[in-house]
Amino acid sequence: MSEKSVIKQIIGKTVKAIRIKKGLSQEDLAHECNVDRSYISMIEVGRNEPSVTKIFDLCTGLRVKPSDFFKLVEGEFEKLREQG
């Protein structure tokens, strides 16, 4: 798996984990970000890669700072690199 697709997967898993932790449905998050629920689903399964602007929108909807979001993504990426 390429690094790019690994990062897409990590972003998706991170969005999903935060969303669940905050008690939001995909529908709730989609509403907060002015996107369709299917777009959130595609991100969460790693089929869609959100732009940086969209990540900021997602972070607003998830009520997390973008810097904290990227720290989580970076941490997961580093874990995978150490294992690989």
Rank of each mutant, 00 (worst) to 15 (best):
E32T: 00
G61Q: 01
G84P: 08
I7C: 08
V15D: 03
Q9W: 06
R47N: 14
T60Q: 04
N34Q: 06
E32N: 07
K79G: 05
N48I: 05
Q83V: 12
V15W: 04
M42I: 08
E3Y: 06
L80T: 01
S38H: 05
C59V: 09
V15Q: 05
I10H: 02
P50W: 04
A17M: 01
L62Y: 14
R63N: 15
C59P: 10
G46D: 13
S2D: 12
I40S: 09
K79I: 06
K22N: 09
F77A: 07
V52A: 15
V45Y: 07
I43H: 00
R81S: 05
L80W: 00
K71H: 11
K8P: 01
S38T: 14
M1H: 10
D36K: 11
P50R: 07
D28G: 01
A30C: 04
K16L: 05
V73E: 07
T53C: 11
M42T: 08
L62K: 08
R47F: 14
L80G: 03
L62N: 01
V45G: 04
V64H: 01
A17N: 08
L58Q: 00
E32C: 02
E78Q: 07
K21A: 10
L58S: 00
T14H: 08
F56R: 14
V52R: 08
E44N: 10
F70K: 10
V6T: 13
E32M: 00
Q9T: 11
G12N: 01
K54F: 15
V64N: 06
R63G: 10
K71L: 12
E82F: 07
L80H: 09
S67D: 12
T14K: 00
G23C: 12
A30T: 04
S2F: 04
E27D: 12
A17F: 03
M42W: 12
I10P: 04
I11G: 10
R19T: 00
S2P: 14
S5V: 13
S51Q: 03
G23F: 09
E27S: 07
G12F: 01
E76S: 04
R81G: 06
Q83T: 11
Q9K: 09
K4R: 13
G46Q: 12
L80C: 06
Q9I: 02
K13Q: 06
S5C: 13
G75M: 12
R47M: 14
A30M: 08
N34P: 01
T53K: 14
V64Q: 05
E44L: 11
I7Y: 10
T60E: 12
S5W: 06
T60W: 11
E74P: 02
Y39C: 03
I11T: 02
K16V: 00
S51W: 13
Q9M: 07
I20A: 02
L58M: 00
V35H: 05
G75R: 08
P50T: 03
Q26Y: 05
M42S: 11
D36Y: 10
K71E: 15
F56E: 15
Q83H: 06
Q83L: 14
F69H: 06
V64K: 02
K71Q: 13
V64T: 13
L80E: 04
